[in-house]
Write a protein that binds this DNA or RNA. Structure first.
Lengths: 114, 114
DNA sequence: TGCAATATATAAGCAACTTATATATTCTAT
DNA sequence: ATAGAATATATAAGTTGCTTATATATTGCA
């Protein structure tokens, strides 16, 4: 399990990226997909996820579609046109972040300033 | 510039990794090295860095060696034996995190659950 | 009949950072 | 000479973004 401290800042981007790839998803589904993709290493908590989804909705990044499935409410989230451009930026940022981290962890002693 | 939200959780690991590779470093030097390695994409603030260094010292992960260079105080930080094992764990965590993020951002639509 | 899984929601509390501020010296340019 | 940039460390107040705990309700399995 990757500690939540590390994941903190990327939560929003992760959610947006999944919505981009899958068209629309509901909250519970998002946590499942993240666990699946990361082999259980990243587990999103609902206390973190739902507030983020609500905030993104209030910012006009997402819209919702409520549906009923077996008497359980499912609230699907979709990107707005504005949301699509937000995701692009966020993913670029995340890729730069990943690249930067790799440069730091891949540096070998003596090669850092050879 | 990568937003600080993303970097937040990795600060401690970044610092420890650099100390591991370079033997000993002083605070100002750490911020420089991070900027250098990431081509200016990651900039550590002193308000974040020094409290982290002090905390790691109080936890027995680091020890200090104060020296005088051109009438400027330099406080070098070094890993303790305990610190070395902490770094190993932290780096493993960070590598798992990087790998997980890559799986999420590299997923293409239609291939995620093919 | 009870527990795990499915599904969403929110409040209180905490940790880790940002921002602002303080101090002091050296180096560079004018 | 003198001003500003770079070097060097430090801490307090404030904010953000999570965790943890709690609440509610249905379906599926043993």
């Amino acid at each position: 399990m990757i500690p939540s401290d590390l994941i903190k800042g990327s939560l929003k981007t992760i959610v947006l990226k999944l919505l981009k790839e899958n068209g629309r998803m509901y909250g519970y589904e998002i946590t499942r997909r993240v666990e699946e993709l990361t082999e259980g290493k990243i587990k999103l908590t609902y206390g973190a996820l739902y507030p983020v989804l609500h905030k993104l909705e209030s910012e006009g990044v997402l819209v919702t579609e409520s549906e009923n499935f077996n008497n359980r409410i499912r609230i699907y989230y979709l990107l707005t046109p504005h949301g699509h451009s937000v995701v692009e930026d966020k993913i670029k940022e995340l890729n730069e972040f990943i690249e930067s981290l790799q440069r730091i962890v891949d540096t070998k002693p003596g090669l850092s300033h050879a």
